[in-house]
């Protein structure tokens, strides 16, 4: 039988405290503890409550990484408390750890937040199969392993909110659905039994709330405790918008499509041409900036762009490898 020694070290925890009913502002309490290499972050939360202050509040339930209630932020990183080992956290951040709620602005009591916005957005994307069910089926509704694989692990999401509250767009645009809702939408969009297909995609295509406002910061992929990789699902949804004919010609879609045209023409991007192609007449609003950049030698006119060498290869590949029409 293999054995390994359990080690222990001192860690200082700076813990966010706030009671929305009583406090005007949040404050931080320090707890110094001996932490063993066997513990997870949730063990620390439990010990703060049981050994130090019974009023300390946080959400927890299954302790097995499946209920999704205990996500918090450790040194700014969204973390599922019951899954994250303290050894990892110390290796990551050292012996000074700050424990905060997923969203400080939504804090209700200590690490407990009002997750209402998360659920509202989850509900808004119709997170269920929309399907005609035969009341007297004569055979099972079979889904092949290949069809099931198309979900690409989107069904592993436990709705902990780690990605949602790590998303910078969610923070500044309250209309934006956010990565968790998109991953959930993809889970049903990719399901062969779902009939809501286009209806749901139209909502996901909408400006301000839909996938086009994603900044591609990769925060969601970084923090997901279940490796759902929401940004990959967002990319797949973008692809579906084109393949299902839902994408309409607007600045966002032309911005994506414009790369293909520019590459076919020059190999490299024609930066000014791209803004013109994407914006159409709206390009006039960029003129003051363009002028400012031109004066600093930051704008190359289309005729002066250095095209890629062996451009014929690129053009041939653009023709033969394109899989989408728009």
């Amino acid at each position: 039988m293999s054995t390994h020694a359990i080690t222990s070290q001192k860690v200082n925890f700076k813990v966010f405290r706030f009671n929305a009913d009583e406090d005007y502002l949040p404050y931080y309490e320090n707890y110094e503890m001996d932490v063993t290499s066997e513990e997870v972050v949730l063990d620390i939360l439990n010990r703060i409550k049981w050994d130090n202050d019974g009023s300390f509040s946080y959400r927890r339930s299954c302790r097995h990484g499946i209920c999704g209630t205990c996500a918090i932020k450790v040194n700014g990183r969204s973390t599922l408390a019951c899954k994250e080992s303290m050894t990892n956290m110390i290796e990551y951040f050292g012996n000074e750890l700050t424990l905060e709620p997923l969203s400080k602005s939504r804090a209700v009591k200590d690490l407990i937040i009002d997750k209402g916005d998360f659920w509202a957005k989850n509900d808004a994307i119709h997170p269920y199969l929309v399907s005609h069910i035969d009341e007297h089926p004569e055979m099972e509704c079979a889904v092949t392993p290949e069809q099931a694989n198309a979900l690409n692990d989107a069904d592993l999401c436990i709705q902990c909110g780690a990605c949602h509250y790590a998303c910078p767009v969610v923070e500044v645009n309250e209309e934006f659905f956010g990565p968790a809702a998109f991953a959930k939408a993809y889970r049903f969009e990719a399901d062969v039994r779902d009939d809501a297909h286009t209806t749901r995609l139209i909502e996901l295509n909408a400006e301000n709330q839909g996938v086009w406002d994603c900044v591609k910061c990769m925060e969601c992929a970084e923090v997901c405790p279940k490796d759902v990789d929401p940004i990959a699902k967002i990319t797949s949804l973008h692809n579906m918008l084109f393949s299902e004919g839902v994408a309409k010609s607007n600045v966002a879609t032309r911005h994506a499509v414009g790369f293909k045209h520019s590459i076919a023409r020059n190999g490299v991007l024609d930066e000014g041409g791209m803004v013109l192609y994407s914006e159409g007449l709206g390009v006039v609003k960029h003129l003051p900036l363009a002028l400012k950049m031109f004066r600093k030698g930051k704008i190359v006119p289309p005729w002066a762009i250095t095209k890629s060498d062996n451009l014929d290869e690129i053009q041939k590949l653009v023709k033969s490898s394109s899989t989408v029409k728009f």
């Binding site: 994506a256 062996n310 653009v318 490898s321």
Partner: peptide, 26 residues
């Protein structure tokens, strides 16, 4: 690498993922 093309800048793959892969692989 004067033969290189644009990488698609995280946008081309939203439109055509396979084309983006081929160009970057090149």
């Amino acid at each position: 690498l004067t033969e290189a093309s644009c990488c698609g800048a995280s946008h081309l793959q939203d439109y055509d993922d396979f084309l983006s892969l081929v160009l970057n692989a090149r």
